[in-house]
Amino acid sequence: MATQITFDSVQSGQDLPGLDVPITASLIVAGAIATSDYSLVHHDKAHAQAAGTPDIFMNILTSNGLVQRFVGDWAGPAGRIRNVKIRLGAPNFPGDTLKLSGVVKSKEVIGKDRLVEVAVSGKNSLGEHVAGTVRLTLP
């Protein structure tokens, strides 16, 4: 967990420290079960293959969780994510690596909220797995 950052220390255009997440079958299954997603394609390889994919793949709630953990690692514990908008693309299969990157798009103060918008992209060897924006408040 990184130290706490503040609204004033953040610059528009600033890059977040990258995060590489090795995608393993264990991570996919742990994420699916932790988020209570028992869909077969997230833990049963034979079923996933019968459904036309080469292997099990990560569920969306885990992708969302990883995006928010990535932004939270940078923001520190007092950062509060207010909303997130993500598009899902290339699936995360075991053996791949999800490379998360982010950049601060804008800062604004609305009332007492000091809001920062971060654009996030997560790529794997097949292409862009996830892309979107996360808005959070900072102290």
Binding site: M1, V21, L27, A30, G31, I33, A34, T35, S36, D37, L61, T62, N64, G65, L66, V67, Q68, R69, G72, D73, P77, R80, I81, V84
Partner: peptide, 25 residues
């Protein structure tokens, strides 16, 4: 959830807050 995501936010581990991304689960 935090173990699966690798999220080490102490506010979550201490039970002071739930991760927002768990809203749906």
């Amino acid at each position: 959830w935090c173990e699966a995501m690798g999220d080490r936010n102490p506010l979550y581990a201490e039970g002071k807050l739930a991760p927002p991304a768990t809203l749906f689960m």
